[in-house]
Design a protein around this nucleic acid. Structure first.
Length: 901
RNA sequence: GGCCGAGUGGCGGAAUUGGCAGACGCUCUGGACUUAAAAUCCAGUGGGAGGGAACUCCCGUGCGGGUUCGAGUCCCGCCUCGGCUACCA
């Protein structure tokens, strides 16, 4: 490698840090990084002037392994966009920080007793060094880490907002809890009842939820620490245990989270992923009367017609949710989830044993067993019947774990003829299958026969049969008519459901944000059930000092080990216990983009003036692994903050781009175990940061998954060397300009190449098509390297185009050409459309669609002229000599085509 | 099973509204320079045929059909691979 040679040649040269005849990234990269730091080149102002652009990278979790080659991919892309935008005169804010809470640091702390903050900060130092080494134009004065106390003070503040907000369904908006209307009966029941009513409506509320309790390790595990029901460490059994936890009512925002996706500039596939996750479905809730001795189904129905559909079903009905009310006549059984509150009541004495056993088994099963591993449907009959509201027929009620308590009403009407799961279940238990839809064009004749006979399931729309007065209706009309009719009789109501569940927001961990919540204690030291928010003025609630981080052997969070002075504050004579759960890692990343705008503000999480000026984010780039959760959670918080007047936009991320994964050289995912991990440090040592950046952009489209190839790095390194030699004379002992450079005006051809390149690179950067932009610059270089006279102006222009991609390299050459200042804010080259036009162009001539000749025509030739020149070509003339020309197609500037017989 | 994405030379990939398939780079081959190597520079590089050459022809963008003067691109039906998701009624 020539760098070794150079250092050998001038080991103590005083020119070491000045220009070198040969391209040596090892000296020029640190030089320009220091220059940018010193001159604060990339610090952005508090407020933008002129057009603003906020470009954000998904900040990394600072793992102990350091930067991965996947990180610089997205980071280089945004850096190019930012550097070009600055040169185009835009106000750019481009910050970086660290998502630094996380399990590995806590595990390290448990092992060593060292505070997780120590290792976290070491890791951050490594990441910062590596990011700086790659020459990204971040405004480092805005750096933050989610573990900074001054940062998580505001994470806690946002939690207080969530705690203080209820969702007004009517207005579809989060409002202060003080504005929650209190029903008269609740108000009459006293202060405790009012408080309880409020607590039930807050966006942050408490609920019992299962955790992964591992008795052998004496600790609660995160889902990712549990593999196949065993602990990842030690392979010990893990059990599910209910624990009081904090939930966030994201489901209240489900509808807005879905609706507001539409106008965003995100890929349709990511939008689809989010929509899928939210999982909106529309249908109806229908009440089935439960047979009893006191009154007949008719009496009940006429009572319902008067009273209407009640908000909460009584004990005498089973409420189900269905998206297919049109199949009501085909319901041959019903299913309730094993956890359904009616299980006991509906089980007749002779079925008690079987039902109890079944429910106990279901409770013991993990989610995995209940879904993935369950190859066959299971269930038991309760012995009870409900009444079909349209036919009046009795329908048997079963308990089965394929119905989930957490979705809809936890009970379904089963229509085996038109639902795959119900069909499977009915087959298993010999339950009648009644076809109520005449299959439409989705089924063949043969299939239709089987469907009508109940031997095949049909889930597509069709025409109603066996459905009384509804016969003949199309599925869609039927749905509407029957819902209306049942609603009029008080038997049903239109309903919408979401797959999205409320967000389980607490973790039984030390290394996370403490909740700013106090539990009131009575004289005996027991919790009264009253919960109090820490006053915003008293934030932050810092983590307590712990002697060690070892598990204490109980399912309660590790903060239960905290010293009393932290754990039991006394306020106004009342003793409290602090909340000891901590927030999940998602919390800090939900709003970091806001703090970047005003990272030092101690009065507010962001100054409204600043927020208004910079938001929303114009470009957000990161991995697709965060396409669902992070983006959904952040959007949810943002909407709450919007409703509460903290931010001015309903959506935070206007444009989103997901970079593709970089695979190892063997086309497999990079991993230590596969031994195919590429370390960015090594690449920088060998080729320099500019080559790494350039290569990652040249590999292929940003969003595509693509394999690493070290030879390719060598390829772009060669390109940089060619540009270097195009401009400098590397054979000289001292810096000197390549003798081919001149101060003449470019020739027409040179100008055409230059302006074509400027146009292509400008357009490609706007499209984030970086690989083709680089190809165009390579073509420029291939052309100009062959030119004996290279106008200096053209050389300067190409450097400005190269600068966003290989910034250190471009700065160095820019300086060599006699400029004293950084090119970071030099005006971006512009192109002249008129110079792109060529006088003559080569076009194909086709006969019967096949290219038979290429001719050169004036660029502005009209159709007649083009045809004339095509016919004049000797080869074409030969081929069409004896033929009859049926048709001639001439596309000006493109081609001529003859259709002959 | 469902949703999404992708199949183009030895490899990564290019290709405006349908208009010269394979830009650019890597690899490989040959040549120049060198004592030699590296580096650099020059030439070639989808497959096949016409004995080599210019030249000409045929085939070729996962497979099978279709629309069109003309299809990598549009339509219909499949196959393979990758990602996400998983009994959501």
């Amino acid at each position: 490698m020539q760098r070794g040679w150079l250092e050998f040649r001038f080991p103590q040269s005083e020119f070491r840090n000045l220009l070198m005849p040969r391209y040596n990234p090892a000296t020029i990269e640190p030089k320009w990084q220091a220059y940018w730091d010193e001159h604060r080149t990339f610090e952005s102002p508090r407020l933008p002037s002129g057009e603003k652009i906020y470009v954000l990278d998904m900040f990394p979790y600072p793992s102990g392994n350091g930067l991965h080659v996947g990180h610089p991919e997205g980071y280089t892309a945004t850096d190019i966009v930012c550097r070009a935008a600055r040169m185009q005169g835009k106000s750019v804010v481009h910050p970086m920080g660290f998502d630094s809470f996380g399990l590995p640091a806590e595990e390290h702390a448990i092992k060593t007793g060292e505070h997780p903050r120590i290792q976290t900060e070491q890791n951050i130092d490594t990441f910062r060094r590596q990011l700086k080494m790659l020459g990204f134009s971040y405004d480092w004065s805005r750096e933050l880490a989610t573990t900074d106390v001054a940062y998580f003070r505001w994470t806690q503040w946002i939690f207080l907002q969530l705690f203080d907000t209820w969702f007004d369904d009517q207005q579809q908006k989060g409002r202060p809890i003080s504005e929650l209307p209190i029903p008269d009966d609740v108000a009459a029941a006293g202060d405790d009842a009012v408080q309880e009513f409020r607590d039930e409506h807050r966006l942050a509320y408490q609920s019992d939820a299962p955790v992964n309790w591992c008795p052998a390790l004496g600790t609660v595990l995160a889902n990712e620490e549990v593999i196949n029901g065993k602990s990842e460490r030690g392979d010990h059994p893990v059990e599910r245990r209910a624990l009081r936890q904090w939930m966030l009512r994201i489901t209240a925002y489900a509808s807005r989270l879905e609706d507001d996706l539409e106008p965003l500039d995100w890929s349709e596939s990511i939008k689809a992923l989010q929509r899928n996750w939210i999982g909106r479905s529309t249908g109806a809730e229908v009440d089935f009367y439960l047979a009893s001795e006191e009154s007949s189904a008719q009496d009940w129905q006429s009572a319902r017609t008067k009273s209407g559909f009640p908000r909460k079903p009584g004990d005498n009905v089973l409420r189900v949710y269905t998206t297919r009310p049109d199949t009501l006549f085909g319901a041959t059984y019903m299913v309730i989830a094993p956890e359904h509150p009616f299980v006991e009541r509906l089980t007749t004495p002779d079925n008690t044993a079987a039902v109890t056993t079944y429910c106990d088994q279901a409770a013991a099963k993990s989610d995995l067993d209940r879904t993935e591993l369950a190859k066959e449907k299971t269930g038991v009959f309760t012995g009870s019947y409900a009444t079909n509201p349209v036919s009046g027929e009795p329908i048997p009620i079963w308990v089965a774990d394929y119905v989930l308590i957490s979705y809809g009403t936890g009970a379904i009407m089963a229509v085996p003829a038109h639902d795959e799961r119900d069909f499977e279940f009915a087959k298993q238990f010999n339950i009648p299958i009644k076809c109520v839809i005449q299959p439409g064009r989705h089924a063949t004749q043969g299939e239709a026969e089987k469907i009508l006979a109940g031997n095949q399931v049909y889930t597509e729309p069709g025409t109603a049969i066996n459905s009384g007065k509804y016969n003949g209706l199309s599925t869609n009309d039927f749905k509407e008519k029957i819902t209306e009719s049942l609603a009029a009789s008080g038997l049903a109501k239109k309903a919408t459901n979401y797959k999205l569940r409320d967000w389980l927001f607490s973790r039984q961990r030390f290394w996370g944000e403490p909740f700013p919540i106090l539990h009131e204690l009575d004289d005996a030291g027991e919790k009264t059930g009253r919960v109090q928010a820490v006053d915003a003025a008293d934030l932050p609630v810092d983590l307590p000092h712990l002697e060690d981080f070892k598990p204490h052997g109980r399912p309660e969070p590790p903060l239960d080990k905290a010293p009393d002075e932290w754990l039991y504050p006394v306020i106004d004579g009342v003793r409290y216990k602090r909340e000891t759960n901590t927030m999940p890692q998602w919390a800090g990343s939900c709003w970091y983009y806001l703090r970047f705008l005003d990272p030092k503000n101690s009065e507010a999480l962001v100054d409204p003036e600043v927020e208004k000026a910079w938001m929303p984010i114009d470009l957000y780039v990161g991995g697709a692994e965060h396409a669902v959760l992070h983006l959904l959670y952040a959007r949810f918080w943002h909407k709450v903050l919007f409703d509460r007047g903290v931010v001015s936009t309903p959506e935070p991320f206007q444009k989103l781009v997901n970079q593709g994964m970089i695979l190892g050289e063997n086309n497999e995912k990079m991993s230590k175990s596969r031994g195919n991990v590429i370390n960015p440090d090594d690449v920088v040592n060998e080729y320099g940061a500019d080559s790494l950046r350039l290569y990652e952009m040249f590999m292929g489209p940003l969003e595509q998954t693509k394999p690493w190839n070290t030879e390719g790095v060598n390829g772009v390194y060669g390109f940089l060397n060619r540009v270097w030699r195009m401009i400098l004379d590397e054979n000289a002992e001292q810096i000197s300009i390549n003798p081919a450079l001149c101060d003449e005006a470019p020739t027409d051809e040179q100008n055409r190449i230059l302006h074509k390149t400027i146009k292509a690179v400008t357009d490609d950067i706007a499209k984030m098509s970086f690989n083709t932009a680089i190809a165009r610059m390579m073509e420029f270089t291939n052309f100009f390297t062959k030119q004996d006279r290279r106008p200096r102006s053209a050389m300067e222009q190409i450097l400005l185009l190269v600068a966003p991609f290989a910034p250190h390299f471009a700065e160095e050459l820019w300086q060599a050409l006699g400029h004293n200042e950084s090119l970071a804010y030099e005006a971006w080259p512009t192109y002249d459309e008129s110079l792109l036009v060529e006088d003559e162009i080569e076009i194909p001539v086709q006969i019967k669609g096949k290219v038979r000749a290429k001719i050169t025509v004036p660029a502005d030739a009209d159709q007649a002229k083009m045809e004339e020149l095509a016919r004049a070509d000797s080869r074409i003339a030969e081929l069409i000599k004896d033929k009859e020309i049926i048709k001639t197609i001439v596309v000006p500037g493109k081609m001529v085509s003859f259709v002959v017989k």
